[in-house]
Computed example of a mutant assay.
Amino acid sequence: MTRPQHVPVLLDRVVALLEPALGREGAVLVDCTLGLGGHSEAVLERIPTARVIGVDRDPAALELAGARLAPYGDRFTGVHAVYDELADVVAGQGLDHVDAVLFDLGVSSMQLDVRERGFAYAEDAPLDMRMDGTTGPTAADVLNSYSAAELTRVLRDYGEEKFARKIAAAVVREREVRPFTTSGRLVELLYAEIPAPARRTGGHPAKRTFQALRMEVNDELAVLRRAMPAAIVAIGVGGRVVVESYHSLEDRLVKQAFSAVTRSEVPPDLPFVPEGSEPALRLVTRGAEKADATETEQNPRAASVRLRAVERVRPSSPGATS
């Protein structure tokens, strides 16, 4: 099996955003997308007051990250869960709140670099793409069972693929000859169906389809939609939620969730904000921060990152969702 590599994106900036929330002894970060533990290791190393609860749906990632972070002893705890189960994870650790929550969304090095997982289009491999390989349908199941209309929706919405309908029709036609089982055959189909001029721009012609299948297999947007409010509720006063997104739909969900809890409900023409009417959270980043050219050159996965953060400045009023 190939050994995965790991280059955390915007590592220094992420740690800098988390640090103010983790300054007290025993402060807790929930790393909701542990992967190989790069962000968690940096926090444990640079912020000696912090401890980390690392969450991942991938048992292999938990095992590798656990070995990497073992030198930090009981300052690190690994939990096998999907990150929309954040409330249960926090309660399971005997906590009523945490000090910071980190999301590094999308596919991790853990999945991309291990060819047997079927996430990458550069090598022929089984069409799996499950982040937790122990449960749920695979990418092959999606390709071999979805209708042409369903496949079109997935490719268009999650991959922003202009030729979604054409590709879907070809998949349905070809699976009647032989079901899809490996990535190589799918890549061949994509080369055949995407016109040559389009193949010459926008990166590898399989990139958008593979992204779309991965997001569908792992139900990523629905999980994120549930996880954002859970993270916001989980942090105490002074706590921060930091999110790295790599897809426009992910970033839009994060932006909407953060805007909803940082927007004042007071009419704009009111000369002052009545006490207790201030938003419970504030934006820490102005818009979405991006990686600079140097980092993008060194780590191509940083090219599409969008980084956002919020901080809780006061408790939520009773009955509020934030």
Rank of each mutant, 00 (worst) to 15 (best):
V7L: 15
P8H: 06
P8F: 10
P8E: 05
V9E: 04
V9Q: 08
V9Y: 13
L10R: 08
L10K: 10
L10V: 14
L11P: 07
L11R: 13
L11E: 15
L11M: 12
D12I: 11
D12R: 13
D12E: 15
V14Y: 05
V15Y: 03
V15E: 01
V15G: 02
V15P: 02
V15C: 01
A16I: 00
A16N: 03
A16Y: 00
L17A: 01
L17D: 04
L18D: 00
E19S: 13
E19V: 05
P20L: 06
P20M: 03
A21E: 03
L22Y: 05
L22T: 07
L22G: 02
G23R: 14
G23P: 11
G23C: 12
R24C: 11
R24F: 11
R24Y: 06
R24W: 10
G26T: 12
G26V: 12
G26N: 12
A27E: 02
V28A: 10
V28Y: 05
V28S: 05
V28H: 05
V28F: 03
L29I: 07
L29M: 08
V30L: 11
V30W: 09
V30Y: 06
V30I: 14
D31W: 01
D31V: 05
D31K: 02
D31Q: 04
D31R: 03
C32A: 15
C32T: 13
C32R: 05
C32Q: 04
T33I: 07
L34N: 03
G35C: 04
G35V: 04
G35I: 01
G35L: 04
L36D: 00
L36M: 12
L36N: 01
G37F: 06
G38H: 09
G38A: 06
H39K: 07
E41A: 12
